[in-house]
Simulated scan of single mutants.
Amino acid sequence: MTTINTYLTFEGNCENAFNFYRTVFGGEFAHVGRFSDMPADPNYPISDEARNQIMHISLPISKECVLMGSDTGGHGGPLTVGNNFSLSITTDSKEKADTFFTQLSAEGKVTMPMDNTFWGDYFGMLTDKFGINWMISFNEASQQG
């Protein structure tokens, strides 16, 4: 099964926003990760200010829908309100993830090629030729349950 969810991006106030969304929709966070949880990478240094900001947070809204988000952490350039979201596709196979990524990135811009990540997903990001941001992921462990 493939799902598409909304991924929101903030400049330092993601945690506040998601605490608000939790009061609206109810439930508990499925995951809260901070930039300080990332392995150190000299190519992407994390400022002291960004270390406690949200790298990834997810709030299940229903069985099929998860609201996700993060702070920019100072990466990716300035945030533009109105374009501070991505559509996040989670697939049930690596092949499907690659197919979606290849097709959506045609004439667009790859911002992070598909690859295995430290959090366990096969993951990539792109902006399609219409300016829409996409995140594509596959998690093999979730398929074995």
Results as ranks from 00 to 15, higher is better:
residue 76 G to L: 08
residue 99 T to P: 03
residue 46 I to W: 11
residue 50 A to H: 12
residue 136 I to A: 01
residue 115 D to G: 14
residue 142 S to R: 04
residue 137 S to I: 05
residue 38 M to I: 10
residue 35 F to D: 01
residue 69 G to V: 04
residue 108 G to V: 10
residue 89 I to L: 15
residue 77 G to P: 07
residue 3 T to H: 06
residue 16 N to L: 13
residue 13 N to E: 13
residue 74 G to T: 08
residue 137 S to D: 00
residue 130 F to I: 07
residue 19 N to L: 13
residue 30 A to M: 05
residue 26 G to R: 08
residue 15 E to Q: 15
residue 45 P to K: 11
residue 74 G to S: 06
residue 130 F to S: 08
residue 9 T to E: 13
residue 4 I to K: 02
residue 139 N to A: 12
residue 58 S to H: 08
residue 132 I to Q: 15
residue 5 N to L: 05
residue 103 Q to Y: 09
residue 142 S to D: 11
residue 140 E to L: 05
residue 19 N to F: 08
residue 145 G to A: 14
residue 34 R to C: 06
residue 12 G to R: 06
residue 36 S to Q: 14
residue 102 T to P: 03
residue 25 F to Q: 09
residue 24 V to Q: 02
residue 68 M to N: 04
residue 134 W to S: 05
residue 14 C to V: 09
residue 115 D to M: 15
residue 97 A to M: 06
residue 79 L to S: 08
residue 42 P to N: 08
residue 86 S to V: 04
residue 17 A to S: 12
residue 115 D to N: 14
residue 8 L to Y: 09
residue 59 L to C: 03
residue 96 K to P: 02
residue 58 S to R: 08
residue 44 Y to T: 15
residue 55 M to N: 04
residue 55 M to C: 09
residue 69 G to Q: 05
residue 144 Q to E: 14
residue 119 W to H: 04
residue 64 E to C: 03
residue 20 F to A: 05
